[in-house]
Design a protein around this nucleic acid. Sequence first.
DNA 1: TTCGATAGTTCCGGAAACTAGAACTATTGA
DNA 2: TCAATAGTTCTAGTTTCCGGAACTATCGAA
Lengths: 111, 111
Amino acid sequence: MRSLAHPALHDITLAGILHALSDETRVAIFAGIAGSACAQRCAAYATVSEKPVPKSTLSQHFKALREAGLIRSERQGVAMHNTSRCAEIETRFPGLIPAIIGAYLAEAESR
Amino acid sequence: MRSLAHPALHDITLAGILHALSDETRVAIFAGIAGSACAQRCAAYATVSEKPVPKSTLSQHFKALREAGLIRSERQGVAMHNTSRCAEIETRFPGLIPAIIGAYLAEAESR
DNA sequence: TTCGATAGTTCCGGAAACTAGAACTATTGA
DNA sequence: TCAATAGTTCTAGTTTCCGGAACTATCGAA
């Protein structure tokens, strides 16, 4: 397995973030990771919003979030530990992630 | 020309907004419209960030912004008047658009 | 009322991106 | 060494995106 690529903070772009989060499944995964105190395994999201997500698709989604700079993934034994990079991003784009998470929660609640 | 479709406020989705703004050209156009007091013609964005944008592509971009609910377009004689729907969206997703515009400006400034 | 100019839209083919099944790789525990 | 677990990569079918060419709508002459 090749080493996982994480962009440096200054390589994270707004368009990249918005694109990564413009997918229902990915924004749900990211909200879950960002809202959790502890690291999350990929497999924790084998079903998202009551829909099963195939393994390969899930892997692609995590890759997209990783390459956008939204999460950090580290192998821990056989599993993967995923944590959000919210704090870092906050220094570059203050208020952006909280606003998106807020909108996500508002939308989820109204459904 | 068929009448232009604008989604109702409650049909505007977060994913739709993020997708529409996940394109460099579109977010630049939207920031221009949102930051302007008066309505903007499509042709005002025939070049964005010093890159020329083909007419057909520009039309598609405006359509994407319109269908995401971000702008309102009305024919005014031979031209189109485009205005942002920021105020409406603010009631549904408070703080979202300002945060994105802020991030866009921060990124534009750092380049 | 026809002609020309202007401003967008639609059509369409090639390019790029997304989805998900199948096969593969890495790590751990028996 | 083997089996199980957790992800990744390969690949093909589908969908979406880009931009040139052709089309439509509106207005202002003449």
